[in-house]
Design a protein around this nucleic acid. Structure first.
Lengths: 204, 204
DNA sequence: GGGAAAAAATTTACATTGGAAACATGAGTG
DNA sequence: CACTCATGTTTCCAATGTAAATTTTTTCCC
């Protein structure tokens, strides 16, 4: 009997509630508004309560970023499901990658914030790799089509994956930082696919 | 007679000294150690002294980032000078871009920190474009070689520039965040040129 | 059930940070 | 010399993250 309307001392679902509150603050106020105290206040608990569930602020931010990677992967998979394998599928994943970054700019910044490079927990790393994995599994298929399974050199495959990832991530990052040219109505002059090399048709 | 050994009340060269101190702290302690008070303390002034020269912490960080972009451009130009025009020149610039990011990781992070997206001063924007310009002028040359000057469609040229920039920046960012695979001795498995599409030889 | 032990939150306190305001210094100028 | 004003300092304050001690609730075992 833990999840009743007894909203007094013990919250009961504080851990996910804090993550949810953090995501909301990111949307409404951006990365700057994301403080320990603000998150706790939004949930309605004291500012030291999170200590029982997370390893300090870093731990809480890492958990929020982890949830971000999960949603990131979901966003990519969304368009991918309905796309035929091959280039179209890859395009859909790339668009999903960028769409997520556009719709969740602050969260995207947090996810790739250098704050975690050293102190990154295991779940965060795993979540990041899940997100990476979506793009990569598609790239792998693409590579097979291009070179044939018998030439599936692992290193060459990895190289192609990285080409793709580096490119899509570079586009999303620069767009997020407002560095890419935009038209008068704020839309980018070029979308990802406009500037993405056709990895599949290298020899075209 | 301002720059003598009278090191008392008035510093005389406080503005550049603060920027220099900030760069040093970035090298030694990373982005986290870069506080207003720490910078002022290193120079030996009170923590409110910078207010006379910069618009708060944001202004000071922006000035440091501006100096960073200047050095970034210099680093790229360095290798470029001795490279023949064309692909080799482009390669040299790309390597310079990445080399700078590797040798100044914290500064690179600051330069592309989302903290300035809205509050960016003019000098910072200009400095960023100088850095961008180095890469782009080379890309433009390349484009000419590829398509011939008579086909110098501005938009197509811009597209090629962005392809290049997006790629190089994506590589540098992911490398900086420790997301790219490395060998046992810490070196990246692939360097920029390994994974950079041959923009010039699209039809090769 | 009852009561000890653990878990979950609170309160209080503290060091650090960025910033504002009032004051102090000294360089330059008439 | 006296005045002015840019440059620094001192003092104060609000906000933040963290630690310690305390209180409340739940769990669990007898």
């Amino acid at each position: 009997m833990k999840n009743q309307n007894k909203k007094n001392y013990h919250h009961g679902e504080l851990k996910p509630a804090l993550i949810q509150a953090g995501l909301e603050i990111l949307e409404e106020e951006g990365l700057d508004g994301l403080s320990m105290r603000a998150i706790a206040a939004r949930v309605g608990v004291s500012h030291t309560a999170p200590k029982n569930h997370f390893d300090g602020l870093h731990g809480l931010l890492a958990a929020i970023a982890t949830e971000g990677f999960s949603r990131h992967a979901t966003e990519m998979r969304k368009g991918v499901e309905h796309a035929p394998p091959g280039q179209e599928r890859l395009d859909a994943a790339a668009q999903g990658y960028v769409r997520f970054a556009r719709e969740n700019p602050a969260l995207f910044q947090l996810m790739f914030s250098p704050r975690f490079r050293e102190k990154a927990g295991e779940e965060l790393m795993a979540a990041g790799e899940e997100s990476y994995g979506v793009l990569m599994s598609i790239a792998k298929d693409l590579n097979w089509e291009k070179a044939g399974p018998e030439l599936g050199n692992d290193l060459e495959s990895l190289r192609t994956e990285l080409m793709l990832w580096v490119f899509v991530h570079g586009y999303a990052s620069l767009l997020n930082e407002g560095k890419l040219p935009r038209t008068a109505d704020g839309e980018p002059v070029f979308n990802v696919l406009d500037v993405m090399p056709r990895f599949r048709y290298n020899h075209e």
